[in-house]
C-alpha cells in the first residue's frame, strides 16, 4: 500500500517536524536517563534502587498513590454522578472547580494544603484533638495526592454517564429491578472501564507528583519521604548516577502504567463502538 493514500499536502513536513521535535524534546533526553545508568554495574544499580531508604520511599509513594486513587475512585464517581444526574444551584461553578487541581500550580496546592491541615490550620486544628495528625505524616501525602488526582476520575466517568441511555435503566426498572440493583447491575458495568481508566490516570499522576507533596510530607527519611524527593536529594549531592538509577525504576513503572492505560482506553472504545 502507498505510504499515504491521500493527496493533501504537508504530510512529510508535518510528520517530519513531529518526529524531529518529539525526538529533540522527549525521546533523546529520556534515553539519556537509560544510558546514564549503564555507568553503574548491575550490582551497583541494584544496591542503589533497593537501599532501605529508597525501598521505604517506594512503599510510601505507591501506597499513598494507591490509597489516593481509591479515594478518588469513590468520590470521583460520586461527583460525576451528582454533576450529571442532579440539578442544584451553583452546579456549573462546582463543575468548573473540579479542574482546579489541573489549573492550580502544585507548589501553591502544597502550601495551601499544609496551611489547612497543619496542627494550627482550619481543619488540622479540628482533627488534632481526635489524635489525627495530617501534616508532616504519610496521611498528609495521601491528602496531597488525592487533591492532584481528583479531576481524573470525574472527567473520565462524567461523559460516559451522560451518554448512558435512560431507556436501559427504564427497561431494568420495568423488569422489576430496584434502584440499587439497576445501579449495580446496569450502570456500574457500563461505566466500569471509564472508572478504571480514571483510577489508573489518577494513580499514575500521583506516583510522579512532587510539588504538592513536599510541603505537607515533612520529608522524614524512612517515614514520609517520597521517591521523587529521593531523586532530588541525590541530585543535590551530585550523585547523578544514583539519582538516575532511581529515576529509571520510576520511568519503567510509569511507562508500564501508560501502556496499561492506553490498553484500557482501547478496550473501552472498542466496547462502546461495538454497542453503537
Amino acid at each position: 500500500m502507498a505510504k499515504h493514500k491521500n493527496i493533501l499536502p504537508g504530510f512529510n513536513l508535518s510528520l517530519g517536524y513531529t518526529i524531529f521535535y518529539l525526538s529533540l524534546i522527549v525521546l533523546i533526553p529520556l534515553s539519556a536517563a537509560f544510558i546514564k545508568t549503564t555507568e553503574l554495574s548491575l550490582h551497583e544499580f541494584w544496591a542503589v534502587v533497593t537501599a532501605p531508604r529508597v525501598l521505604a520511599s517506594y512503599k510510601l509513594t505507591f501506597g499513598a498513590s494507591l490509597i489516593a486513587a481509591l479515594i478518588n475512585g469513590v468520590f470521583g464517581l460520586l461527583t460525576a454522578w451528582v454533576l450529571v444526574r442532579y440539578q442544584f444551584t451553583g452546579k456549573k461553578i462546582i463543575d468548573a472547580l473540579v479542574d482546579l487541581p489541573f489549573a492550580l500550580p502544585t507548589a501553591v496546592a502544597g502550601i495551601a494544603l499544609t496551611a489547612v491541615y497543619s496542627s494550627n490550620g482550619w481543619i488540622g486544628a479540628w482533627l488534632e484533638p481526635h489524635g489525627i495528625k495530617v501534616a508532616f505524616t504519610p496521611l498528609g501525602v495521601v491528602i496531597a495526592l488525592t487533591f492532584i488526582g481528583l479531576p481524573f476520575v470525574v472527567r473520565t466517568v462524567q461523559p460516559v454517564l451522560e451518554d448512558l441511555e435512560a431507556e436501559t435503566e427504564e427497561a431494568a426498572a420495568s423488569l422489576g429491578a430496584n434502584r440499587w440493583q439497576t445501579f449495580y447491575k446496569i450502570i456500574l458495568p457500563a461505566i466500569w472501564p471509564a472508572l478504571l481508566t480514571g483510577f489508573a490516570l489518577s494513580f499514575a499522576r500521583a506516583i510522579g507528583e512532587y510539588g504538592s507533596v513536599i510541603f505537607i510530607a515533612g520529608n522524614m527519611p524512612m517515614v514520609s519521604e517520597i521517591t521523587p524527593l529521593i531523586i532530588i536529594t541525590k541530585l543535590e549531592q551530585y550523585d547523578y548516577a544514583g539519582a538516575t538509577a532511581v529515576a529509571v525504576v520510576m520511568l519503567v513503572i510509569s511507562f508500564l502504567l501508560l501502556f496499561a492505560i492506553n490498553g484500557l482506553q482501547w478496550w473501552f472504545s472498542r466496547r462502546t463502538n461495538a454497542v453503537s
Binding site: A32, A33, K36, G208, E209, G211, P228, Y240, T244, A247
Partner: peptide, 14 residues
C-alpha cells in the same frame, strides 16, 4: 507519564 522531577533530571544529564 514522566514525573516532573525526572523531566528536570534528564536535561541535567545532557
Amino acid at each position: 507519564a514522566v514525573s516532573p522531577v525526572i523531566a528536570g533530571l534528564i536535561y541535567v544529564l545532557i
